[in-house]
């Protein structure tokens, strides 16, 4: 009897937190298909008329589609760079022997601790110096740099666990280092690569502070940067703003629904290194 009450309490707690989790999204969605009057009537009420035109308005006026595409491409580019550069470094750090190896490895580890904010001024001047303002290649490199430490840490750890007999077999078959890394070891490391890829992508998609500093051209705004301009709250029509929010979170929700196990384990391995 007692344990039944306990169980019930647990379920109630779970349901309440679940509702709290879903609640903002639900409200946002409802508001995204209302006009101002409908929103003023109460955010909870179902809309009297479903105004899907808010979505087209969001698309046309706020360049939100462009911003989503910008964010996604930044996420993808940083992911590609982090993966490639990280795998190259991790391969050397796990398979070769040389003098400075442990120093270089621990250097990368320390890099995880550096707070982003300590670097914004020099990075901003650097961008001015080499023409990196409003350009994605520079932003991509910045994102990659801040994800690299962790990638190298995870990749090296994983490669160390991969049996070295695999290398020997490949070398006997005449593989050089490039082939060994890209034909043999990369496919074997796909689990950890996908984990890191998700981490980097999520970071690149939502990153705010560098996007604020380095991007001033509205057409190049990422989704985080683009949405900042709404928080002033002087807009006439609220509905399209909510539609924009929905657009912004949609790619992430899709990614999450598709790969939630992977995302969860990935985020976790990102935390435990600290």
């Amino acid at each position: 009897m007692k344990s039944k009450v306990g169980k019930l309490c647990c379920y109630v707690f779970a349901i309440i937190w679940g509702l709290i989790t879903i609640f903002p999204l639900y409200i946002t969605f409802l508001s995204s298909v209302k006009d101002n009057q409908g929103i003023n009537l109460g955010m909870f009420k179902l809309p009297v008329k479903w105004l899907w035109s808010n979505y087209t308005a969001a698309f046309n006026s706020a360049h939100i589609g462009q911003a989503v595409i910008n964010s996604i491409s930044l996420g993808i580019m940083s992911t590609v760079i982090v993966t490639a550069v990280g795998m190259l470094a991790a391969y050397v750090l796990s398979r070769k022997r040389f003098k400075l190896k442990s120093i270089i490895y621990s250097l990368f580890l320390v890099g995880v601790m550096v707070p982003v904010h300590c670097t914004i001024i020099p990075i901003s001047s650097l961008a001015t110096g080499i023409g990196g303002r409003n350009s994605y290649w520079f932003l991509t490199l910045v994102y990659a740099a801040f994800n690299l430490s962790q990638a190298i840490f995870l990749f090296t750890g994983y490669l160390n666990e991969v049996n070295k007999e695999l290398d020997e077999a490949a070398i006997i078959d005449g593989c050089n280092d490039f082939q060994l890394l890209f034909r043999v070891l990369t496919p074997v490391s796909l689990p950890i690569i996908s984990t890191q890829a998700i981490l980097t992508f999520v970071y690149g998609y939502g990153e705010l502070i560098f996007a604020m500093i380095l991007l001033s051209d509205e057409r190049k705004y990422t989704i985080s940067r683009a949405m900042l301009s709404f928080s002033g709250g002087y807009q006439q029509q609220l509905g399209p703003i909510f539609a924009c929010i929905i657009f912004a979170v949609l790619p992430m929700i899709i990614l999450y629904v598709l790969f939630h196990e992977k995302v969860q384990s990935g985020m976790l391995s990102g935390a435990v290194k600290g």
């Binding site: 909870f44 989704i223 985080s224 929010i245």
Partner: peptide, 27 residues
């Protein structure tokens, strides 16, 4: 379900709550 909020980008989350906390029509 519980994990999902982390995935949403921070500004989107912030904006949602700004409107929920809006004094005149916020939820």
């Amino acid at each position: 379900a519980f994990f999902m909020p982390v995935m949403l980008s921070t500004t989107a989350v912030a904006l949602m709550w700004v409107y929920i906390l809006n004094p005149s029509y916020g939820a």
